[in-house]
């Protein structure tokens, strides 16, 4: 799906800033994996809602509607 690498440095920085802890070497890969799952979920839901609203493409509104639910799904 994702054919190229993501910016590993930024992911590490972001998580480091939020957790206030250091990361072990390859955690960011797993975190990005989780993020990819999240994106997959959010886009699946958003496409469903946008189709239900008879919109051609995924709209920002549908993403916003779905966002909170998806975040709750991915809460630990």
């Amino acid at each position: 799906m994702a054919q190229t690498l993501y910016p590993r440095g930024t992911v590490k920085k972001i998580v480091k800033a939020h957790t206030n802890r250091s990361l072990s070497k390859n955690v960011d890969v797993l975190i990005f994996l989780n993020y990819a799952l999240f994106m997959q979920d959010i886009i699946k839901e958003a496409s469903i809602t946008s189709k239900a609203a008879n919109e051609r493409s995924i709209s920002a509104l549908s993403v916003r509607k779905v966002r909170e639910g998806c975040l709750r799904k991915f809460a630990g």
Binding site: T19, A46, A60, F74
Partner: peptide
């Protein structure tokens, strides 16, 4: 939609960071 998605990613990383911590 991209803006909304970027916001969602920000929220997601914030949430995941807190959980992981």
């Amino acid at each position: 939609t991209l803006d909304a998605l970027v916001k969602a990613t920000d929220f997601f990383f914030e949430q995941i960071g807190e959980d992981l911590a």
